[in-house]
């Protein structure tokens, strides 16, 4: 059963899918849902061929501009830099942020050979220089690499009179200090602010 084995093997590319669930999925599609399998295959092919990166923010889209960048309701003067497309979804779902995004698709990672070029920083620098952006929100992860990436982007924005903020990192809501790890607690402590 070379085909079936191949299918089971390929399904394991998906996050969270091990050999067992891949087998279950393959059997389900082949035994109970041939039409669904056809549709899935066709859509998968089309998506893989047509989905590219938004010209402005690098997020995934099948058009030149993603929905957020194309929307006239978003404030073009505000730019939020994130590491991944999932971060855009998270901020969209949890906040009322009305600006645009820039998706790095990673962070500076010296030992993996990921530098400014790989993250599209030249493109970001051009946008800063264009004068359109007034406010920059750095929402990279609260890791050493995420912080350094934020620092690097802040240095690119510096010559252009852009107001730069970094999202706060710290104690989770409902979190008891005792159970928060030392690194997080230190970050929370060092970014403490006026009590109001």
């Amino acid at each position: 059963m070379a085909l079936l084995d191949g299918l089971i093997r390929e399904l394991q590319r998906l996050p969270g899918v091990g050999p067992k669930s891949a087998r279950r999925m393959a059997y389900h599609l082949m035994v109970h849902d041939r039409d669904g399998a056809q549709q899935l295959a066709q859509l998968m092919r089309q998506a893989a061929e047509e989905i590219g990166h938004c010209e402005l923010c690098r997020n995934l889209t099948e058009r030149d501009l993603c929905d957020i960048c194309a929307s006239s309701k978003r404030n073009p003067g505000q730019l939020c830099v994130v590491e991944s497309a999932a971060d855009v979804q998270a901020i969209e779902g949890a906040t009322d942020y009305q600006g645009r995004y820039f998706v790095l698709m990673g962070h500076l990672s010296p030992l993996d050979g990921i530098g400014p070029e790989e993250l599209g920083m030249d493109q970001l620098e051009q946008r800063f220089a264009s004068g359109e952006i007034k406010e920059l929100v750095l929402a990279t992860n609260a890791t050493l690499e995420g912080n350094v990436t934020a620092q690097y982007i802040a240095s690119l924005a510096e010559p252009n009179q852009i107001s730069v903020t970094r999202i706060a990192h710290g104690v989770p809501m409902g979190g008891e200090l005792e159970f928060v790890d030392g690194h997080t607690l230190r970050a929370a402590f060092s970014s403490r602010r006026e009590f109001d």
Binding site: L108, P110, D112, P116, L138, V148, Q151, Y152, R166
Partner: peptide, 21 residues
Amino acid sequence: LESRRLWAVYSKLGKTDAVRH
């Protein structure tokens, strides 16, 4: 060495209070 390639990038970054850990 990858770390040598990015040395110049990191060297430019001083201490920036706004985004320090």
